[in-house]
Amino acid sequence: MNNYISVNINKVAKMMLNTKALNNITTTFEEHIIHGIIGPNGAGKTTLIRIIASLLKADKGNVNYILGNKKLNNIKSYLGYFPQEPSLYPDLSCQEHLEFFKALHRISDNAFNERCEQLYKVTSMTPFKKRKINSLSGGMYKKLGLMCVLLHRPKLLLLDEPTIGVDPLSRRELWDLVYNFAKNGMTVIMSTSYMDEAEQTNKIHVLNEGNLLVSGNPLEIMERYHLNKIEDIFLKIDNPKT
């Protein structure tokens, strides 16, 4: 039996303030790969991520989490979630953030020291340990966010537009980080509105106005729909006759 998490979304619908945020979404987030939820603003990406994170309840349908062959009732112990909005504490330092999450996740001192060292190393954040969040750059901020959610070694990592507002170099670094950790048995689901990032994922789930247009490997989708760029999918599916 493997030790990875997969997520099945079954006919999930959600209304947000009288707007249909999600409309009968059915898809599978297979274990141990990087998934991209892509779509323009207002497509329903954040709503879907929050439903997977158990932060929103679906009006209809259900979400099933499978660990190996076992169905999980509560995902929170296995979850690492980094929201889209800034969510760290401006007056705390990087190290204080990690210590806070260490206590929340009840990580032992030895494991914490080992993981911290590793995280600081791969993120190149070691010189900024004592720096407060309000003086970090956008890229460093996101890296620290990732460090916080990776500290307890989650099996399911949810990232809501992690690269938004980040310079191209930092975006690449963040992607490298995600790849690095995904290799170690993590299922990663990240939303993005950057279409070039979608091509770097193993599977994309394309959303538009709350509807799932298509899901699959980005290269296969491009081939199937004869696309030059992945963003053309919105034109193809919205205008099937052309």
Partner: peptide
């Protein structure tokens, strides 16, 4: 601050 969302995602 948005930090509640992060906090609520933990157990």
């Amino acid at each position: 601050n948005g930090s509640m969302e992060l906090l609520l995602s933990t157990h």
